[in-house]
């Protein structure tokens, strides 16, 4: 249920905005009045998201490239100072035992999930510090809070995002910056389907999906909108005394 009072007049940046959790977050923020810079490498997906985000602008680029984050700042300049950041860009990488992860895949995983998150924050934070105000939500994962045998490399990268976020929170808290992360569990997205698909043949895929479902106290997968609701809460003034938290949105899986 949109609450138009929450983000009217604020400028935000959403990375990974072309699909999944990033798209749902962007649409939610725009519905409540935020004007957004939407960032993703997928220009077509971005355009589709933008069609549901009035007043938004798109930047097609690579989150691992500092120069592309500079283009985000340029795109935001006409809108005003950036007050909100949601870093949804992320990849799954190999859902495989650590011994089977190729070095190039490991590097790519950490480049997108960790360095990409850091680069976005490094680019935007000076504006927030100058304004004395800013709210940041990063996207970690339930797999960033507990060891995960299905996708250990992804788990390691998301664990890094959790502590990047907490360090950010303790570093700049007296300067008006709040930083929190959401830790989605199994959410119905292409990434979740990819997690299952990497199990192998059809029987193995079905078995992995059944195991994920069985491990979840709610017995179902979440929706992208359910994650976006938490991101919007953490970005909003209702969360003005909340910083440094990692909020699971996982149907109780981590409990």
């Amino acid at each position: 249920m949109p609450r138009p009072d929450r983000f009217t007049g604020r400028v935000g940046v959403v990375t990974g905005a072309a699909s999944g959790l990033g798209r749902a977050t962007a649409i939610g923020l725009a519905a409540e009045g935020a004007r957004l810079v939407l960032f993703d490498r997928d220009a077509e997906g971005l355009a589709e998201t933008a069609a549901s985000c009035p007043g938004s602008v798109c930047v097609a680029g690579d989150v691992t490239a500092a120069a592309d984050h500079a283009r985000v700042l340029d795109a935001a300049a006409p809108l005003g100072p950036i007050a909100l950041v949601a870093t949804a860009a992320g990849i799954l990488g190999p859902a495989a035992p650590l011994t089977d992860v190729a070095e190039a895949d490991w590097d790519r995983l950490f480049a997108v999930n960790v360095k990409g998150t850091w680069l976005a924050i490094r680019a935007i934070l000076p504006q927030m510090l100058a304004a004395g105000r800013g709210a940041i939500v990063t996207f970690a994962s339930g797999a960033g809070l507990a060891g995960n045998p299905t996708m250990p490399a992804y788990s390691a990268s998301k664990g890094a995002v959790v502590l990047l976020t907490r360090s950010l929170a303790v570093s700049h808290v007296t300067q008006g910056i709040r930083a929190n992360c959401v830790c989605p569990g199994p959410i119905e997205t292409p990434m979740l389907r990819d997690t299952f698909a990497q199990a192998g043949d059809a029987a193995a895929v079905a078995a992995r999906e059944a195991a994920f479902r069985a491990r979840n106290p709610m017995g179902r997968f979440g929706t992208v909108d359910e994650v976006a609701e938490s991101v919007l809460f953490l970005l909003s003034d209702a969360a003005s005394y909340i910083t440094g938290v990692a909020l699971p949105v996982d149907g109780g899986k981590l409990a």
């Binding site: 929170a169 808290v173 709610m218 005394y241 996982d250 109780g252 981590l254 409990a255």
Partner: peptide, 12 residues
């Protein structure tokens, strides 16, 4: 979709 979680509202 949130259950079993702890939400800290203690200002860090």
């Amino acid at each position: 979709y949130i259950t079993g979680a702890v939400l800290d509202v203690g200002g860090g």
